[in-house]
Simulated scan of single mutants.
Amino acid sequence: MNRIAQGIVLVLLGAAALSCTVVSDLYLNYVQSAFRPFLAAAGVVLLVLGVVAIAVDLRSARTPDPAAEPGHDHAGHAAAGHDGHGHGAPRVAWLLLLPVIAVFVVSPPALGAYTASGAASGPPRESAASLDDLDEEEWGDPSRPREMELQEFVMRAWTDQERTMAGRTVRLTGFVVPNPEGEGWYLARLQMACCAADAIVNRVLITDEPEPPKDSWWRVDGTWVEPEGDIQAIRDHRFSVSEMVEVENPPDPYE
């Protein structure tokens, strides 16, 4: 692979990074929104380096070849090329272009039901101390559902020993995950601290509604099924549905 080819790879990598961050929100499938300026800056750097590499090689190609000058040692030049010093990387290096092209042709989707079904649910990452009290003023109109992120709902269900969420109507949005154990299905959302590689699942178990298609997104109104005994000993908290509406996939699928 000569310098022009290397420059093309850098240009394509830079263009891929810019297309995922500036042109679209595709980067949200892999990292948090805070990383957008860093990814865009990296794309610009790769693009500039690639253009510079191509320009330098093209300029070198226009300069006279020393081998054509009188008195040049053609045998030594040929020997240098023959022993490998005059050659670039092997042709297999062109395979480096495949993942770059794949970004443009096949955009990897965000993590979904496959990841969530294999992940074990557990206590949330954040501290319960960061949550507001669910008094009447904070809750708002009791006749209208309060919209919560799934991570907030799960955190309250696991940590609120006063059970102040009991009997209150909540609105959750997430995607459908089949229950491998066969009882009901999960409404889930993935939460990441940095990137998709460290994502954990927040989910609630729904048993009073038929299971929708896997990975479809739904807005669900209902109430927490208050468990008996220690709330922190519950593996998956249940949610009783009063109304559910299918919605479009959100631009940012993570919480």
Rank of each mutant, 00 (worst) to 15 (best):
S242E: 15
D132I: 12
S216H: 08
A193G: 09
G167E: 04
S19V: 04
W217L: 07
I200S: 14
V44G: 04
E255S: 13
L10D: 00
V31A: 11
R146C: 13
S24T: 15
L26K: 10
A5W: 07
G222K: 01
L172T: 03
A113G: 03
C20S: 15
A120H: 11
V100L: 15
L187D: 00
V201Q: 00
T173S: 08
H72F: 10
D65W: 08
S143Q: 13
R203M: 00
L190M: 05
V23N: 10
D133W: 14
G88Y: 04
S143G: 07
P180L: 06
W185A: 01
G86E: 01
V105F: 10
L150K: 04
L205G: 00
V52Q: 05
D83N: 07
D198C: 05
N179K: 06
F104N: 04
S240R: 12
F35I: 08
A128F: 14
A34N: 08
V105T: 05
P142D: 12
P212T: 05
L134S: 08
E228Y: 03
P109Y: 12
I200A: 11
A75C: 08
E136R: 12
V48Q: 12
S240A: 15
T115V: 12
V51R: 08
I4E: 01
R189K: 14
P124E: 11
S24D: 13
M148H: 11
V56R: 15
A128W: 14
V45Q: 06
L97R: 10
S143A: 15
G182Y: 05
A128S: 15
E209Q: 15
P90A: 04
P70N: 04
W224A: 00
Q151T: 11
V154Q: 01
D215Q: 06
I206F: 06
A61D: 09
G112L: 07
S143C: 14
W224Y: 13
V201E: 03
L18C: 03
R59N: 11
L46H: 03
S130N: 10
D141T: 13
I101S: 09
M244V: 04
